[in-house]
Structure formats: C-alpha cells, structure tokens
Amino acid sequence: MFPWIEAFNARVASLSFFPIIASIHKRHGQKLLSLVCLLPLLGSVAEGLMGQLGARPWFRAMGEMGEIALAMLIACLAITPLVQAFDWKFLYPWRRTFGLFAFFYAILHVLARAMDLGLDLGAIMEGMFTNPFLLTGFLAFLVMVPLAVTSTKKMMATLGGKRWRLLHKLTYVAAILAIAHALMAGKAGYINFLPQAVILAILLLWRLVYPTLRKAMQKPQG
C-alpha cells in the first residue's frame, strides 16, 4: 500500500536466508504456530503443578485462559489488516489457527470456571442469562461454536465462499461480546482490559476505513 513497504518487502525477499525461512514456513509454519499457541496453556499447567497459581488456583486459571482466548481472537482479527497494510499474504493461514485457538482457550476458560465453582451446576448457571457480565461471555462463546465447526476446508466448500465469509463475519460479534465481557470483569471494572479494547477498536475501525483508504491511495497512480 505504501511505497516503502514494497521496498522493505523486496529487501527482505532478497536476503540470502529468505528462501530457507520461506520453505520452513511453507512446510511447518502451521505446526510451529500451533506450538506457540499452546505455550500459554503449558505455562498455566506448569504453574498449577508447582502450586504457583496462588490462593484461588482455578479462579486464576480461569482469568488466564480468558485473557489468552481474547488475545487469540485479537490476533485472528489482526491478520487481515496486516495483509492489507503490508501485503504479507503468508499470514492468511494463521487466521484459522488463531481463531481455533481462541475457541480452544474459551473452552478451557469455561472449564476452569466450572472447577472454580466446585462443579456446582446451580452456581454455574446462576445469572447466566440475566447478568450482563455473564451473558456477554456466554454469548461470545456461543457465537464461536459455528465458527469453529465450519473452520474446515470441507465446510467452506459445502457452504460456498460467499456464505462462509458472511457467516465468519460473526468473528466481529464474538470479539465485541468478548471485550464487553472482559471489561465487566474485576472489582474496578474496565481498567484491566483497556489496552485490548483499544487494539480491538483499531482493528475493527480499520475494516470500516480501509476501502476508502485504498481508493484514496490508488488515485494518484491512475
């Protein structure tokens, strides 16, 4: 989009070791990325096994898993703007990985909460549909289910690209619900998740602004 980015990309592509990196990425990129995405879970499990999760281990684990789920969702939504701004098309397949891991960590978040509440169904369900804090979290989780289910190539083919893309715009809804949920967590409220909220707002605004931006950038070149 910007001339200096083209120059930068060309420079990187001309580096001597670039073909090696590119080929590793092509053959193992997804596996490596998945391993990286598993690291936060391994970290929490290690903390748990060492008794380092503190006085309320399940509550802490719930918070950690929720934060990672939100981070994965943000990473997923960052891909398209990064490709559009920097022309890094190699990032596209990362979107699905981040999206699936967001769902994976959301499941762990829900399970940790169930453990925190002593697997007491009454306590788990209380306020789920009436309390905005719980309801937004529950809906964010619910919205991610069809996205995860239709994440395979086969489902994409079955649905057809157009319908699939429309369905996957639900990612925006999931992200908005998730950040609303996060902002309502904690005694002091919004303050804990302000950075995530700002980044998410930028990523969503980008999608509104980008078509106009692209047109404006293309005009001078005829």
Binding site: R56, A123, E126, A185
Partner: peptide, 9 residues
Amino acid sequence: PRWSQKREH
C-alpha cells in the same frame, strides 16, 4: 450488579 453474592470461595 456484576456477580452473585450468595456464595463465596
């Protein structure tokens, strides 16, 4: 307003 006070950990 954001959570129940019926129980405690």
